[in-house]
Amino acid sequence: MATLWPFISQMNPDASTIAAGAPIEVDLSPIAEGQDIKVFWRGKPIYISHRTKKQVEEVRKVPVSSLIDPATDQSRTKDGHEQWLVVIGICTHLGCIPIAHEGNYDGFFCPCHGSQYDASGRVRQGPAPLNLPVPPYQFVSDTKIQIG
């Protein structure tokens, strides 16, 4: 069994791939309210949205129990930075990239199989089973985050 391990382990990401997947810092100051940017981390697109007051109010008003994958907006954002939403832009259905600012929930719309997410990245209409995942990140300062 131990002999087999190197032959399986070699398939995992190699050292340079892991190194390239180190945390990145993103400056938030150029993103105006209502805008969003897409950055790549570990080959995955990450949406950073500067949400409007209206969007934040709306997603916090939704009863959590009515969601497909129940989660509060508070649990998906950082306290004191509730205008910022950071999510991995990969549809949880089969891995396509949803389009921001589209769909019926003022959030994301996946063009592949029609999943819709709200402005908190929570799935509101199938076939996706889960919310858009929130990557590990923290605020380094008020206008800068570190992803990873």
Binding site: I8, M11, N12, P13, T17, R42, G43, K44
Partner: peptide, 17 residues
């Protein structure tokens, strides 16, 4: 899936294998 990709998404290692 990470094992299949050899990375964090479909990329060069995936193409190679």
């Amino acid at each position: 899936v990470t094992l299949l990709w050899g990375g964090y998404s479909v990329g060069n290692p995936t193409l190679n294998r």
